[in-house]
Amino acid sequence: MSEAARSQAPGSMDSAPLLETSGLTKSFRSLVALRDQAIVVRPGEIVGVIGPNGSGKSTFFNLVSGFLRPDSGSVRFDGQPIERRSAAEIVRLGIARTFQGTRLFKALSVAENVRAAAQLRHPSSMLDALVGTPRLRRAARRVDAITGELLGLVGLTGRAGVRAGDLPYGDQRRLELVRALATQPRLLMLDEPAAGMDAAETRELMDLVDRIRRRFGVAVIVVEHDMDLIMNLCERIQVLAHGQTIFEGAPAEVQAHPKVREVYLGHA
């Protein structure tokens, strides 16, 4: 991605924060997985969270997406506290996530995976389905349109009927990405999206994430291991180690910072 392209990014420092965590702390028995974490993500921004294994990245993700409850601290989305909300409520509010190593509905077709997610914003009741009301037909048309558009975006239109579990790994990751997008989030959280991908696939994925962000105006948080992906894609990077935030700044600053080099790059 070029510098010129990055400067057109919709993220802007003076808009109100979309996601804001503060004092976020979570322990598992005696192990403090995350301590006093704070991050601000503005609408349309793309932020990276990096750190070695066990640094608290996944805990941070699980706290924001409602899979875990924090011991203390707050998570605000669009100004309202969400740290006590269920995972289902949080998706409805507009935060979607992917999983490390994907978690598709493998027995469903590619299109069905997206349709399952797209109906969140275009609901129809059982009664609608039985009677075939105009509402149902409208909802079904919208869901079909979204599904078609998203599959086109990741080049899976020709494989819409294929069982998701039968897709090659890279396609499964792309499918999971657009499935998350089908819930029409304002914040998309990607958990190690490039894990298991080669350099070419990783580059392709970066392009895709960037295109998605521009096209749909979503903010993105990427948790990664892969330094290159984070450095080229993100506007801002937070570095975690042993549950603590050790640095936050622009990619170039992160790369240059001695403490980061010590705890992170030393391990890489």
């Binding site: 289902a88 996530r97 978690r103 509905f105 399952a116 997610a117 969140l120 609901p123």
Partner: peptide
């Protein structure tokens, strides 16, 4: 769990 996560009721 994944179903809840993609917003299914």
């Amino acid at each position: 769990q994944a179903a809840q996560l993609v917003g299914l009721d």
